[in-house]
Write a protein that binds this DNA or RNA. Structure first.
Length: 424
RNA sequence: GGAGAGAUGGCAGAGUGGUAAUGCAGCAGAUUGCUAAUCUGUCGACCUUAGGGUCGCCAGGGUUCGAGUCCCUGUCUCUCCGCCA
């Protein structure tokens, strides 16, 4: 959520930013925000003045009672009754202006960073980095869902029986490889200074709202209505909300946390060949990194996250590219997002495996996550997160890119974690 | 699930109807021959900035001229019991 005073003081910047996202009716909604803001403030001033008068009278009445001047006191009492009615009306209208303002602000996405290009869809994303050799697999290369069946390591039908589509069962060396990846990722992250946590997999409405999944992505999360809890679509929610409402000292920066969780997504509206196999699941595993940063350092921190993820992919020897998302493809809450995609040779397409974003103060505003700055004032912190990494597509990439006539070769760096070097 | 206790500023912790003590931490300044001590101010949010004003003691209502304090509803935490991995 953008801060009202930021919009008030930087209207043109906000409009230019929203234009890069192709955000419809930006001007209209910004004007509505500004109007609601003016109304809210004017009403608050009127209310404050009424209450001030009322408070003053109450003090006088107190004094009169003490000195025994009951008649005078009763006269003043009548006056306060009128003031009370007036302030009640003003309070109600203040509330409705504040609510209106809040609802409008919830609809406005973050202002993209200056380096973000305008664009409407993934077609407009900028490819800014490529690394890793694309293997030559020959004509008999199989997509991962065939390999999974051939070596009996992932059972999609079994998942269908137990739950439904998009809930695979990993078996034998498939399960072991999955666990190896989780451990490997967590080890890499903790070695880079991230503190490992295990967090709840269900969150309340407040948490989901603070990181921006609600109200924007309502319907994408599984919702346990009886307890009003949501299954997490990403560890970003519980981990970032660990710090909700906190007032930090500058010396506490940077805060760096990593955690492994399953992620649950309804993926309503997804269909077709692109959702085959592991490409799009309702439940998948992911290791996440989250940073809370001083505003002056957040972009440097984002670059650090990108370098960190690069190193992991380098070690796994997987061919990948980095995209800087265009305005239209950047998430609602993000100011700048880099997507990592690995190349699946057998499918001949790029698969998104990580997304690293700087949210600046957008989440912090809802989280009320602040720090004391050098002037002793409270200031919003910056929040960032990235996947390091999402499991299923990395698994798909390994199965497909490492397939040989003798079976699936395990990347060297994972062999100690797996305890085997081939899946045959 | 049953019973009891509780929720106050960044933290700790007073305050049972008259308008939020105190300590620690933070920030600013003063002073002193010195890794520090001492003193002063500041130290929640919003509005307005010339003063100021308003709100704020878990949330939402109510009583009252006036509520941290009294009443109602809800949420959460702790203790004990029950159930259970």
């Amino acid at each position: 959520m953008l801060q009202v005073h930021f919009i008030r003081e930087n209207k043109e910047t906000v409009l230019a930013g929203l234009a890069k996202r192709n955000f419809a009716n930006a001007e209209t909604i910004i004007d509505q925000v500004l109007a609601a803001d003016v109304n809210r403030r004017a009403t608050q001033v009127a209310l404050d003045n009424t209450l001030a008068e009322s408070n003053k009278l109450s003090k006088e009445i107190g004094g009169l009672f003490k000195s025994g001047e009951v008649q005078k006191a009763n006269l003043l009492k009548e006056k306060t009754v009128q003031l009370k009615e007036k302030s009640k009306e003003l309070a109600e209208s203040l509330n409705s202006f504040a609510e209106e303002l809040q609802e409008l602000l919830y609809q406005i996405p973050n202002v993209p960073h200056s380096t973000v290009k305008a664009g409407t869809s993934e077609e407009d994303n900028e490819n800014i980095f490529n690394e890793g050799a694309i293997p030559n697999l020959g004509e008999n290369a199989l997509p991962h869902w065939e390999l999974a069946k051939k070596y009996d390591i992932i059972d999609f039908e079994l998942g269908n029986k137990i739950t439904g589509a998009g809930f695979p069962v990993y078996k034998g060396k498939g399960a072991r490889l999955q666990r190896a990846l989780i451990n490997y990722f967590l080890d890499k992250n903790t070695k880079a200074g991230y503190t490992e946590v295990q967090v709840p997999h269900l969150v309340n409405t407040e948490s989901a709202t603070a990181t921006g999944q609600l109200p924007d992505k309502d319907g994408q999360m599984y919702h346990s209505t009886i307890d009003d809890l949501y299954l997490i679509p990403t560890a970003e929610i519980p981990i970032t909300n660990m710090f909700r409402g906190n007032l930090l000292q500058e010396s506490e920066f940077p805060i760096t946390v990593t955690g492994y969780t399953p992620c649950f997504r309804r993926e309503a509206g997804s269909y077709g060949a692109h959702v085959r196999g592991l490409n799009r699941l309702h439940q998948f595993d992911k290791v996440e990194i989250v940073r809370i940063e001083h505003p002056d350092n957040s972009y440097q921190a984002l670059n650090g996250m990108v370098e960190h993820i690069k190193e992991i992919l380098r070690e796994l020897k997987l061919p990948y590219r980095i995209l800087r998302l265009c305005g239209g493809d950047t998430g609602f809450t993000s100011a700048l997002t880099f997507d990592f995609e690995l190349f699946s040779t057998a499918q001949d397409r790029w698969l998104e495996i990580s997304s690293a974003s700087n949210f600046e103060t957008f989440q912090a505003n809802r989280l009320k996550l602040r720090f004391k700055n050098k002037e002793g004032k409270s200031e919003l912190a910056h929040t960032l997160n990235g996947s390091s990494l999402a499991l299923p597509r990395v698994l798909a990439g390994i199965l497909e890119n490492y397939q040989t006539a003798d079976g699936i070769k395990i990347p060297d760096v994972l062999v100690p974690y797996c305890g085997f070097d081939y899946i045959k």
